[in-house]
Nucleic acid binder design. Structure first.
Lengths: 351, 351
DNA sequence: GTGAAAGCGCTAACAA
DNA sequence: TTGTTAGCGCTTTCAC
């Protein structure tokens, strides 16, 4: 009994066999044509494309993945999709991926390592060819399961000891130094820092870079002026309120991200403090919205485009260059200060 | 020659056969166990789960999809992922989908019908079980290809004449009426409207509802006070500037979405107009950020949670209830006014 | 260049 | 209840 005896002429989507039948070629030729194999003659190729168009045929990616092992699916896991930084990053990443014939799988962890593990698992089940983990150094150990399965992975600011893992190093230092220099040259001597949650490596890195920058600028580091927030707008409001309870007040506040800075802007307004006359504020990220705050936010730009490119390049290197021992496994993304309206000389310059 | 003669003990991921071997059962029993079939005895089920754990086995979704025809993949296509409304919607939709064992595929069209068509095509190739098109009435004709293939689809504010298509009706009218009543009771007689792009059905609906509300409140409709913007912050700034060139000025502005309203807030500030004393502003959407603008934005809430639920329910009805002729195919999401700080009585009440 | 056929990992029909 | 097996739609040897 022939294997395909069950085939009936039921209404169903056209498959590769239907195309082959119309074009009067074998299914192998259809497959070769679609995949751009050079071995197909002009004559047959033309017939095949015509049949494809005629049937409005779309190849089944699952069948394709099953046999080839490659899904042309790239995962991107972000920390929190409601922080505007991430949609902007996702958009860029998708743009690049689609341009290269990949599709993306998006997940947001909301900073929950359990969710991260579930996301990673789902991406593994979907056989993602690679995964970009843009959670900035949070609980990455759960990601072992990905690399153990040989799936390329790229992490922001976290090194996994695995040949399949690449890292994007973020040079916050340059931007933060520029920020401190900018404030110092304006006459600020008292600068506070609203940090991100210490569960994030990136938050700790940023804070350390701030400390280093303060010292290299010859300024005093005040422990009480370094406050742990959570990278949300509300957190920025709370951080500012905590700060304003202190007896000694800073004349400028540098924030670990833009959302925090926007919270500060808002809290300062509510307290009738004028920015930048009474208080200078600097953010970090340069989300699209930063240009439109009141006043427009001076901030340290972390380019989403650069980050998305680095992530994609890292994954692609792993995918295409895997054997090569000299393959690039570390990528650098830099930061730089963007001066807008939220910084100015302090009204009563300090000693 | 047996079909599986090629099998070598090469290093590879565990498959269902490996699990079956360890558990000493057939692959069918493994499959049944994983899919929660009630036909498996406790004893075998236990052995299977243990083997799965031992091998760290993950089922291959592509193989599963290929044979079952269901991918457990749901697509969501949004208009613009950098408008905060959409990430909030995506997050909710993902949450619901994942809770029901579905995965989501996200795409953002940036209001480009060509991109919409490409997104739809990719989702078809990935065999999405259903697609939620949250582009709010923009160039939906290209979506014919989806319904023609029998894939359930749900659209916001657009009816497709196809049994596989459901619609989410948005009742802007209630919220917009409340907004106008609110302004009228505050003493406003001169109310402008900054519309969304007329390429969007939803924008036109909102504008019409505004006109209706103005008239039913017994106010005068001024043609010059209805300006087409583009639902972006920049568009709101531009719209406000266009408005302020007119000789007769409104005392309140209702905007077609929150981003536009935020643009107005900003533009008003730059012109030294105080909100709400000199000008009242109302948005629409109630994005998370609306609570944190300066002043906090009075706005018409369009709940992302409600919308996400409606979209998921519509798709699920199609998936599970397909045969039923009484299946619900229209879903309603309502709106309501949220009063915050951007509205007040006009300083010099009109006649 | 082109075609025949094996088989990717799983589900479901059928047999036992 | 459990096992055997066909076959989902495609890519990829291997012949010719």
């Amino acid at each position: 009994m022939p294997r395909r005896s069950k085939r009936k002429t039921a209404a169903k989507l056209p498959d590769i066999r239907a195309v082959a039948a119309i074009a009067k070629v074998s299914i192998a030729t259809v497959s070769r044509t679609m995949n751009g194999s050079s071995l197909v003659s002009e004559r047959l190729s033309k017939r095949v494309w015509q049949a494809i168009k005629q049937l409005n045929y779309l190849p089944n990616t699952h069948a394709r993945t099953l046999v080839s092992g490659r899904s042309r699916l790239l995962g991107i896991i972000v920390e929190n999709i409601t922080n505007p930084f991430f949609p902007e990053l996702i958009q860029k990443f998708e743009e690049i991926a689609v341009a290269h014939g990949y599709e993306i799988l998006v997940s947001s962890t909301n900073s929950d390592p359990v969710v991260l593990a579930a996301c990673a698992r789902r991406m593994l089940e979907r056989k993602a060819d690679g995964v970009a983990v843009m959670t900035f150094g949070e609980e990455e150990p759960v990601l072992d399961q990905i690399t153990h399965r040989g799936v390329p992975i790229v992490l922001a600011e976290f090194k996994l000891d695995d040949p399949k893992a690449s890292t994007i190093l973020l040079d916050y230092s340059t931007g933060i130094h520029q920020a401190i220099q900018h404030l110092a040259s304006l006459g600020h001597r008292s600068i506070a820092f609203l940090s991100g949650p210490h569960s994030l490596h990136s938050a700790i890195t940023r804070e350390n870079d701030f400390r280093a920058a303060i010292q290299s600028a010859g300024l005093q580091l005040q422990k009480k002026w370094i406050i742990e927030c959570d990278h949300t707008l509300k957190g920025g409001v709370a951080g500012f309120e905590q700060l304003s309870k202190l007896t000694a007040q800073p004349t400028a506040i540098v924030c670990s991200n833009d959302m925090t800075a926007i919270g500060v802007l808002r809290a300062a307004y509510m307290k009738n403090l004028r920015v930048p006359q009474d208080l200078s504020v600097i953010g970090l990220d340069d989300i699209d919205f930063a240009e439109f705050t009141l006043p427009p936010l001076t901030t340290i730009r972390l380019s989403r485009a650069d980050l998305a490119h680095a992530a994609f390049d890292a994954l692609r290197a792993q995918l295409e260059d895997s054997g090569n021992p000299r393959m690039q496994r570390e990528f650098l993304v830099s930061t730089s200060l963007v001066v807008r309206g939220s910084t100015a000389a302090p009204s009563k310059p300090e000693a």
